[in-house]
Nucleic acid binder design. Sequence first.
DNA 1: CTGTTAGCGCTTTCAC
DNA 2: GTGAAAGCGCTAACAG
Lengths: 343, 343
Amino acid sequence: MKPRITIREVAKEAGVSIGTASRALNRAGRVSEAAIAAVSKAARRLGYEPDAIAQSMRTRSSGAIGLIVSDLANPLYARIITAVEAALQAAGYALLIASTHNDGKREKNLIDLFRRRRVDGLILGPCETENPKLLEQLSQEMPVIALDRDFGPTGTGVYVDHYTGALQATRYLLNLGHTRIALLTPGSVLRPGRERIAGFKEAYKEQDLKPVPKLIRCEKSAMDFAFTEALSLLSGPEAPTAFMCLGTRILAGVLQALRHTGRTAPGDVSVISIGDTDLSQLFTPSITSLTWDLEIVGTVLAQLMLKQLERDADIEPETIVITTQLVLRESCGPATARKKATA
Amino acid sequence: MKPRITIREVAKEAGVSIGTASRALNRAGRVSEAAIAAVSKAARRLGYEPDAIAQSMRTRSSGAIGLIVSDLANPLYARIITAVEAALQAAGYALLIASTHNDGKREKNLIDLFRRRRVDGLILGPCETENPKLLEQLSQEMPVIALDRDFGPTGTGVYVDHYTGALQATRYLLNLGHTRIALLTPGSVLRPGRERIAGFKEAYKEQDLKPVPKLIRCEKSAMDFAFTEALSLLSGPEAPTAFMCLGTRILAGVLQALRHTGRTAPGDVSVISIGDTDLSQLFTPSITSLTWDLEIVGTVLAQLMLKQLERDADIEPETIVITTQLVLRESCGPATARKKATA
DNA sequence: CTGTTAGCGCTTTCAC
DNA sequence: GTGAAAGCGCTAACAG
């Protein structure tokens, strides 16, 4: 493994001091054009590559941003991350990535790890054990941007308006005559889950109705849970006439359950899902879905970060809300004579 | 932003020299138990967190691994990355991530960037412009693990056996009586594409048949391409009786085209896809698919990396081949009287 | 076993 | 404008 070229050698090659070499390379402070020319020529000739670690050491800035989510493989996150990465890459930042698998302890470890690596900023997705105090404290050390995650009124972040989304979706189903709507969500602890459930309930309230408690099911493990829950709901005495699948992988489980019991949408039950996947678009029937722009979420996340990085003084916290759209497809129909017995 | 605690302060607090403090913290060299106790107590009390940048500066090892793929949002990569991240995290490494969007120039930039950041190793996914020389040279600087990507006989990597996979899948279709098989693949430049096409042709050869050249279509942009291509193929004079969708997002386009033209599988055409997504599993009919274990790919990738990192001497290159499985579902049927005209 | 010292490669005063 | 020198926080030699 050949030794790297250092600025020292570049300076020697260019016939200047290392101080001048540094200034020339960074075009900082007073440097003569002649020096700049000589140094950059020397650098090019030698194939000099500044050592980012040494730079960080001096400047106290690593040029890296840490991003922590619960699960990288979640397609929603994956697309957000892509957008974040693109924007950050364009601005010259590197992206350190890690996933918590919803383990609060692990998240804390990762944050510490990233801190030790002197990341310049942190983007945090939702995690089971949100610790607002921890984050607030953290954000005094470096910019912290939250993604769909609560942390006090002083926090900066981008939030998807799950509340209104769920509200609209539920309204839509209620207006179709459904009252026995099953709500499957991967958890009520995380902000998205909480908001969605709140929106769901609000829609009922608007019409002076009450949701059926037994039809609200939340659990961690996504797809398997959805399948078994949907199955049990369908075979129960008071089966739902509609399903709201509030989580990326819930829909798959529900569709599986429908298939398993010989039901079809929208004839037997109506189905609404969250997130616009291949599955929701191409399934027959295509699935009415609640969607939002993941690229924008990622881009905004990165922009907020870059903005905070730029003026590293403390700036007022900023909150960007992303709205959702209800894409009407074929999977919902009126709740007419849905008396079909326990199958 | 409060100043960090340094080892200097820990040493003072513990009443030892910074050298001893360092040794105590790292349990390296000769240290008394007493010193260890005193130092770790002091460290804990002060909330000391070693500065990873400074450590890297000295040890010439950043504790970070770079991972470069064409597209983070590709669900296949996403799941591989998750596994890589988990394994690396467990071993105390951080993961730097970036995507090339199949731009060879950008890839080169990213590699340089990562090199400047002194990553301890590099994991590289396929990229349009594979540059075996570049990689070979690179691998003399640090461990480089290739993912489904050729780089000379000296390279270490994990490879999916796309060749045999495509061979088996094609055989299967040929045995069902299909001879007009359309092959849609996102590209023949990348190793996976090349291998798949080779396997496809080999299957024909085995039976003394020849594939229909016009039915082989490759293009970069995944889903849109697949849709339009499939459409044109279906409405052409000699429409295929089967589709092989050799790429993550191809299947969606083909299914869309089928739906658009009122065709269904396996009645009108047979369909085989690559990768086991929700879509292939839950679509009606469920799609016969070629799959392999993404978690294993990720884990093996990380293990190869860790192994090379451990014994940083040059070790013999290693190649792990991952086999694929053909999961038979409902989307393929015999090619009987498929005389259905140009619709 | 422990303290002292010399840097890692770079940026940034500070004199000149 | 430029050079010399002082570290950033840490580890690794080297004496003791």
